[in-house]
C-alpha cells in the first residue's frame, strides 16, 4: 500500500471534514437549543450553494458573498422559525418534524421552480500546493480556514456575549431562563437563525468544492444526521469532530474498500452509536 496516497487522502478528508463539521453544527445547535430536528436543514444548505452561485454570476467574489450569506441565513432562519416552528415549539417532536419537513418541501419546490434541477458548479480557480503525490487544492484550504473561523466566531459568541449566554441558558432550561427574564421566543428564533446561517455558509463552501443541484440537500442532510449523532446530539464541538471523522472515513476507507461500501459502514456505525453511545462518541454515558 502506498503511504503517500494514504497521507494525501487523509489531508483531503481532514479538510473536507471541517466543512462537514460546520454543516452539521447548524443542525446540532438547533436541536440542542430547542429539541427540534430540523428537516429543513438540507434545503438551507442548498440555499447557501445557490446564493453563492447567483452572486458569482453577478460578479461578486464567492468568499465575499459568504458575508452576505451570513445575513441571508440569519434572516431566513428567523423568519422560518416564526412562521413554521414557533407555534408548535412545545408540541411532540413529530409535529416539529413535520413542520420543518413542510419547510423543506416549500423551499425545494421554490428552488426547483427558480433554478431547475440541473447540475451547477462554480467556475473558481485558486492556486494549489503540491508536494509529491500530495496536492492541496486552494479552494479546500480556504474552505477550512473559513470553517475554522466561523467555528471560533460561534464559540466566542456563545461564551463571550450576553446574547450567546442567553442561548446557552435557554438550551439548558428554557423555563428557568424565562424566570431569569430572558425572552425565550426571541432567543429561540435567533438560535434557529444561527443554525440556518451555519448550514448556508457550509453550503456556500461546498459550492466552491463540488458541483451541485437543487436536490443535493437530501444526501447532505442525512450525512449531517450521521455527523451530529457521532458528535452527540446538541453538541457543536462534537459536530466538528464528527465531521472530521466522517471526512477522514470517507477518504481513507476508499483505499481499502470500494467507495460504494462506505455508506453501509457509515450508517451501521450511526445506528450502533445511537444504541450504545446516544450522547455521541465524546459525550458522557
Amino acid at each position: 500500500m502506498n503511504i503517500e496516497a494514504l497521507i494525501a487522502s487523509s489531508i483531503d478528508g481532514l479538510m473536507l471534514g471541517f466543512v462537514f463539521g460546520l454543516m452539521a453544527m447548524g443542525l446540532t445547535l438547533i436541536f440542542g437549543v430547542m429539541k427540534v430536528i430540523n428537516l429543513g436543514h438540507g434545503p438551507f444548505i442548498v440555499m447557501g450553494m445557490f446564493a453563492i452561485l447567483v452572486m458569482s454570476q453577478l460578479g461578486i467574489n464567492p468568499y465575499l458573498g459568504l458575508v452576505i450569506v451570513v445575513l441571508l441565513g440569519l434572516l431566513t432562519g428567523i423568519v422560518v422559525y416564526f412562521v413554521a416552528v414557533h407555534r408548535v415549539i412545545n408540541a411532540p417532536e413529530l409535529t416539529t418534524l413535520l413542520a420543518t419537513f413542510s419547510v423543506n418541501m416549500i423551499l425545494i419546490g421554490a428552488l426547483t421552480i427558480i433554478f431547475s434541477t440541473s447540475p451547477r458548479g462554480l467556475d473558481l480557480e485558486l492556486p494549489s500546493f503540491r508536494t509529491g503525490a500530495i496536492t492541496v487544492l486552494g479552494t479546500r484550504f480556504v474552505a477550512v480556514l473559513v470553517a475554522v473561523g466561523v467555528t471560533i466566531a460561534l464559540y466566542s459568541f456563545l461564551y463571550r456575549t450576553r446574547t450567546g449566554k442567553s442561548i446557552r441558558a435557554v438550551a439548558n432550561n428554557r423555563g428557568a431562563a424565562e424566570l431569569m427574564g430572558i425572552n425565550s421566543s426571541w432567543i429561540l428564533a435567533l438560535s434557529f437563525g444561527i443554525g440556518t446561517l451555519l448550514a448556508m455558509i457550509s453550503g456556500g463552501l461546498l459550492a466552491t468544492l463540488f458541483s451541485f443541484t437543487v436536490l443535493s440537500g437530501g444526501g447532505l442532510e442525512v450525512k449531517s444526521f450521521v455527523i451530529v449523532v457521532l458528535g452527540g446530539l446538541g453538541n457543536p464541538t462534537g459536530a466538528l469532530f464528527g465531521g472530521i471523522i466522517i471526512g477522514l472515513l470517507e477518504s481513507i476507507t476508499t483505499i481499502f474498500i470500494p467507495v460504494s461500501w462506505v455508506p453501509v459502514f457509515e450508517f451501521v456505525v450511526f445506528v450502533l452509536i445511537l444504541l450504545f453511545r446516544p450522547n455521541g462518541l465524546f459525550g458522557a454515558r
Binding site: 436541536f31 429539541k35 430536528i37 417532536e93 418534524l97 442525512v222 444526521f225 450521521v226 449523532v229 446530539l233 470500494p258 460504494s260 461500501w261 455508506p263 453501509v264 457509515e266 450508517f267 451501521v268 450511526f270 445506528v271 445511537l274 444504541l275 446516544p278
Partner: peptide
C-alpha cells in the same frame, strides 16, 4: 423520541446502501 426516529432513518439508509452493493 427523536433518537428512535433518527435510528430508523439510519436503518433504512444502511439497507439501501447495502443492497446497492
Amino acid at each position: 423520541g427523536a433518537y428512535f426516529a433518527l435510528a430508523t432513518i439510519g436503518i433504512n439508509e444502511a439497507f439501501r446502501s447495502f443492497f446497492t452493493n
